[in-house]
């Protein structure tokens, strides 16, 4: 049983609006798979369908060889979930949250208590064992959510935007822990709109837009196949005039967004040389990244 998540032609509509549209994907054991997409792309709905919390209008889901939603309960026994919005118990301490949550999986108090020290250490919360949840920082709450998702020693962990709202230090700690989990053979499915997070953590990822999968590959291959390798960002007051006159001449493709012109090129040298001679404009030359792919595929307009 190497494929642990198998989704085939999944459909879901709300009020005539297709939220998940013909989605198929499969995830292997030990893989970290990312679902990327702008707000409203269908990421959270996909997770709800996979958990069996919402019924699909069509298509099939198999989790750990259990058909979902019919046997979602059995599948959830070996599943951990880090939700997008923290739903820790505010009336409880850190350790009580783990104890009470473990009981939902039918675990004995002895079995849970035996795991708590390890879970606290993993989430850097050993010193906070008896702290009440409302006294924790945002980063600590996310780590406790992660520890809670591991209480039943799951095979698969779903993480819905696990680092949204965290400062860089807290984010890096979460990333480090997630890498440890994949190296232990856990399968991770995470949604995010941090491209850096997806690029660093995910073995493979899918970009969703309007409920459809518009690209799926390793981060490296996605960048290689979808976009020019070099990006020069040009900014300054005169950037609009400059872009009208010169951008097309020096780049394969360019976009002006606000006071920045994004120039996508295979060879940046002629453009950089030109810009060095052009006082009043500043520029940043960098390799193309996942965010460039994402913006190219999903567009620049706001989705909220």
């Amino acid at each position: 049983m190497n494929t642990v998540v198998d989704v085939h032609k999944l459909h879901k509509s709300y009020a005539g609006q297709r939220v998940v549209d013909d989605l198929s994907l499969s995830i292997k054991r030990g893989e970290c798979y990312g679902l990327l997409g702008p707000n409203g792309a269908g990421k959270t709905t996909t997770l709800r369908l996979l958990l069996g919390l919402t019924d699909p209008d069509g298509g099939t889901v198999r989790l750990l060889d259990h058909a979902v939603p019919g046997h979602a309960r059995e599948a959830r026994l070996k599943l951990g979930v880090v939700p997008q919005i923290d739903n820790l118990d505010p009336d409880f301490t850190v350790a009580e949250n783990l104890l009470v949550y473990g009981r939902y999986f039918g675990m004995s108090d002895a079995a849970i208590n035996a795991r708590i020290p390890m879970l606290l250490e993993f989430s850097n919360l050993t010193a906070k064992r008896d702290a009440m949840v409302p006294t924790l920082s945002g980063g600590m709450k996310r780590r406790l959510s992660l520890a809670r998702a591991l209480v039943n020693d799951p095979d698969i962990i779903f993480l819905d935007e696990p680092t949204t709202g965290l400062d860089p230090q807290a984010r890096h700690l979460i990333w480090q822990r997630l890498r440890e989990l994949t190296s232990q053979g856990k399968t991770l499915l995470l949604t995010t709109h941090f491209m850096e997070e997806a690029e660093r953590l995910c073995h493979r990822l899918a970009i969703l837009d309007h409920g459809r999968m518009i690209a799926e590959d390793t981060p490296h291959e996605l960048i290689k196949h979808n976009i020019e390798p070099q990006v020069v960002e040009v900014f300054g007051d005169e950037v609009e005039t400059w872009a009208q006159n010169y951008a097309a001449q020096f780049s394969q493709r360019f976009e002006v967004s606000g006071e920045t012109a994004f120039c996508y090129v295979s060879d940046a040298q002629p453009l950089v040389a030109h810009l060095q001679a052009h006082a009043g404009l500043r520029y940043l030359h960098r390799p193309a990244n996942l965010e460039d792919v994402f913006i190219k595929l999903t567009g620049r307009e706001m989705r909220d």
């Binding site: 958990l51 959830r76 026994l77 599943l79 979930v81 939700p83 739903n87 999986f105 039943n152």
Partner: peptide
């Protein structure tokens, strides 16, 4: 408000 049910529904409880 507290989303306690959401948390529980992610476990084998219905």
């Amino acid at each position: 408000h507290q989303r306690t049910w959401d948390a529980i529904l992610n476990t084998p409880i219905t």
